[in-house]
Amino acid sequence: MDLVLIRHPEVAIEAGVCYGQTDVPLRCDVHDLAGKLNARMHALNVPACTDGWHASPLQRCATLAQALSSDAHIDARLAEMHFGAWEGRAWDSIDCALIDAWAADIEHARPHGGENLAQFAGRVLAWFGETCENRDEAVHVLAHAGVVRVLAAHLLGIARENALQWPLDFGGIAWFRRVRGEWLLVRWNA
């Protein structure tokens, strides 16, 4: 089984703004982005999507999934982490003591009042268990950097807080393959 995870393309919001579950649009035309993504996946020999794209309900993912497939599976469990009171604020405007408190216990702290990493990962992994555990055909997902990193940590058996540091570009592809019950990383940030 192949699991193809794609971070949404660049969004129309200023750099440096915390926008977790804030519903911001894509910066470029969704149909152009769909064509470029299809061409890139073809060049990388990514397995074809035969069962429709799975996507976050946030428009930066859902609109692209719908442009790629008439059978998009929109699921709220694939939304980015909710950052509570920090949503829509510039990161450099948030009290450093609050960010430090969050970083000191990222798994459980929630100084912003939104989700902590454990809550976020719980809903993402619930989607994974229901959608991917007993499946042989490829699954294609359009989601967010946090979702991709949480799933990568789970599949590779590493600490989530370590995977959160991995670079993942807008539109970056993370491709995993299950072979004899073990998950292998085929490509990261392709």
Rank of each mutant, 00 (worst) to 15 (best):
A65Q: 05
E130M: 11
G16Q: 07
S56T: 06
N45S: 14
A153R: 02
A97V: 12
G171F: 05
H31M: 07
Q119G: 13
Q59G: 07
D105C: 04
W188R: 09
I106G: 12
P111Y: 07
H140Y: 06
L5Y: 01
W102V: 05
A109K: 07
D95N: 14
E130D: 15
L117V: 05
D92G: 00
T50D: 14
L68T: 00
F170K: 06
W166N: 00
P57T: 11
Q59M: 14
F128P: 01
S70G: 13
R149P: 06
H154G: 03
G16Y: 07
C28Q: 15
G114H: 05
H144W: 06
A126D: 14
A15D: 13
C49W: 05
D51A: 15
L155K: 04
D105E: 06
P9R: 02
D75C: 02
W53C: 01
F176C: 12
G171L: 06
G129L: 08
P25A: 12
R149G: 08
N134M: 06
T63G: 00
V11H: 02
H42C: 13
H144R: 11
I158F: 08
N162C: 14
P167I: 02
L125R: 10
A15I: 05
F120E: 07
W127E: 03
A72K: 03
H8Q: 04
R40L: 13
T63D: 12
D32V: 13
S56R: 11
E14S: 14
A104P: 06
S56M: 12
D169G: 13
D95E: 14
L98A: 13
H73V: 15
A79T: 13
G181Q: 00
H8D: 01
D136W: 01
G16D: 09
H73T: 06
D29Q: 11
V30A: 02
L155D: 08
F170Q: 09
L185F: 00
L78F: 03
C18D: 03
H154C: 06
H140G: 09
V141M: 05
E80V: 12
G16H: 09
D51Y: 11
G84P: 03
A109R: 02
V179M: 12
W175R: 15
I173H: 05
F176D: 12
W175E: 10
E130T: 12
W53Q: 05
A145F: 00
L37V: 00
K36Q: 15
N134V: 04
E130L: 09
S56Q: 06
R77N: 08
A43D: 14
H140F: 10
Q59E: 10
R110E: 13
A34F: 04
G20Y: 09
L185W: 03
A65W: 00
C49R: 09
L3F: 05
G171R: 03
L37R: 00
V139T: 15
V11W: 02
Q66W: 03
A67E: 09
R27E: 08
A43K: 13
I13S: 10
